[in-house]
Amino acid sequence: MSRPDAKDVAERFAASPLLPRDDGGPVFAEPWQAQAFAMAVQLSADGHFTWTEWTTALGEQLQAAVKRGEPDDGSRYFEHWITALEQLATDKKLTDLTALNERKEAWADSYRHTPHGQPVELGARFR
């Protein structure tokens, strides 16, 4: 069983529909976008979902955004990206919505309770 090279998978993902990019490749406005991109690449490289499943999931999110009348300028592209990724991760039972929501709140809480300059770790408020 050969595991596809993450670099090759990354190139394929960089060709995702409407991905903000220039001649040099994908362009990320903020660090979390690159993180979300890399996570999709790694999960796919590890066989958790196929390229077709990915483009279908992402395409559904992009279409839903158009239907909601959101501007089609790419500014929210990676929000749709992470929504598609959450959807696939829950469809494939890698995690579930409850866990995602609870964990998101736990992170937000940790940020609120971590003094500036210290690394933010989960459960910071219990220290």
Binding site: E30, A36, A89, L100, K104, A106, W107, Y111, H116
Partner: peptide, 21 residues
């Protein structure tokens, strides 16, 4: 500001998904 700013909603969702996985 004696706490760290809370990242944006999508940034938090990325952190949540990543840490769980």
């Amino acid at each position: 500001q004696d706490h760290t700013d809370v990242p944006s909603d999508p940034a938090l969702r990325v952190k949540a998904l990543e840490s769980l996985l």
